[in-house]
Amino acid sequence: MNIRYEKEDKQLIVEITEEIDHHIAEKLRRKVDDEITRHMPRKTIFDFSRVTFMDSAGIGMIIGRYKMMRLIGGSLEITNISATVRRILEMSGINKIIPMEDKKEVG
């Protein structure tokens, strides 16, 4: 995972580089919550361009961060999601409350 905070836009960009299961979700949530508490961003953006696998642990992790951002008056966005990840997100219905943008197919 790579995290960077863009001060001018008050945006926290979280690029996830690992497969999101329960094991990884626990680590992600601890780290991201630390960064949110530290910077109090206006927006947190999860960049999913390098996520090749996600199970239902990802849904819980995303909803948890969504609630946290709402609590501090900010928002959450997910970018570059693949078709497989979208399938899982849609099953849970969270695509209706969290803005998400698909990965642009290459070639």
């Binding site: 239902s56 849904i59 849970s92």
Partner: peptide, 11 residues
């Protein structure tokens, strides 16, 4: 409380 989504069996 553990951020489970309850979507495991559905998936």
């Amino acid at each position: 409380n553990l951020e489970r989504s309850g979507m495991g069996f559905t998936i």
